[in-house]
Design a protein around this nucleic acid. Structure first.
Lengths: 161, 161
DNA sequence: TTGTTTGTTCAGTATTGATTGAATGATTCG
DNA sequence: CGAATCATTCAATCAATACTGAACAAACAA
């Protein structure tokens, strides 16, 4: 195995690890790594072959990544396999997921503030403090997404290999 | 069970769920919820009793939260139990963890860029693009932490109940 | 139509990690 | 020095979930 191939599989494996520590299945992370390296459309069969996992796993993980908005289906003329590729600036989709989770957190805090008697001053103060924090963090991330989405409206990183 | 108690346990349970979806043990999240509501120092025995879990679980999860920098040990005069409380603006510690994970991601990308032949133009471009993204996101979060740490240097949310 | 290829679903397995009870260790009190 | 009270550790259990193989479904070719 060449140095480059060695480096590639190490990177893909690290992506798998990183995905796991972010609560995503490991294979999803490895698929992401595959696309970052090899780019362009790839068929499910190619992925299964290259990552040495079952077609079933590739199928379900492709759906997961599609639902996250990170992968998109495409087609190759004259081939009836399904092809997938990274969506443009896929990482923004991940940030959006983060924003969403902060949203549910914010809602949960708001609900607690509403349902707790107002005279639990300490609890209300802590809830409000944390609520404020979450909301500013969320706004901040939103603005970051905007900024990064604007930049690079021109550049493209598509193309096979 | 009163409305308030109902609301409290619902909130604590939601915190447990949120923790889980962030890759943290559920009990850790519930403990966090407990402190947000009840504030002030609490003994491990109190926590185990209130959350209906074993003392062993409380102990290990307290250590997890302590290592994350979210809880800190304290002492009550005339009592030799261990008491814990939220650190001031505990959520900043969580953000710092996030920053750290982005750091390892950045390092992983850099390593791939280094080890891959430069003539894999597509791969290098995608790696660089993602690397840039991660780094700006990290800087952004760092700045947010700074800003939030400055604000509220005066206010305190401590105090029992 | 039948046969072939490809994607998905589903039941079962395996693995990972959280939680517990019991044992151990440490500290304070009498 | 015990006795008592906590905290921690460790082996075992339990739960959740990733992953697989096989069955099924859909699309196409001949």
């Amino acid at each position: 195995m060449s140095d480059a191939q060695q480096a590639i599989s190490a990177f893909i494996e690290r992506m798998g690890l990183a995905a796991q520590s972010d609560g995503m299945p490991r294979i999803a992370g490895r698929m992401l790594g595959y696309f970052i390296i090899h780019g362009g459309p790839a068929s499910l069969a190619e992925l299964a072959q290259s990552l040495q996992v079952s077609r079933a796993s590739v199928s379900t993980n492709a759906r997961i990544l599609r639902n996250l908005g990170v992968l998109e289906a495409t087609a190759m003329p004259g081939d009836r396999q399904d092809y997938y590729q990274l969506v443009e600036r896929h990482y923004l989709r991940l940030l959006e997921g983060h924003v969403e989770r902060m949203g549910t957190m914010s809602a949960s805090l708001a609900q607690a503030e509403r349902e707790l008697p107002a005279d639990w001053a300490g609890a209300q103060a802590r809830l409000a403090d944390m609520h404020h924090f979450i909301d500013t963090a969320r706004d901040n991330t939103r603005k970051l997404i905007e900024r990064l989405a604007r930049r690079g409206d021109k550049a493209s990183t598509k193309g096979r290999s």
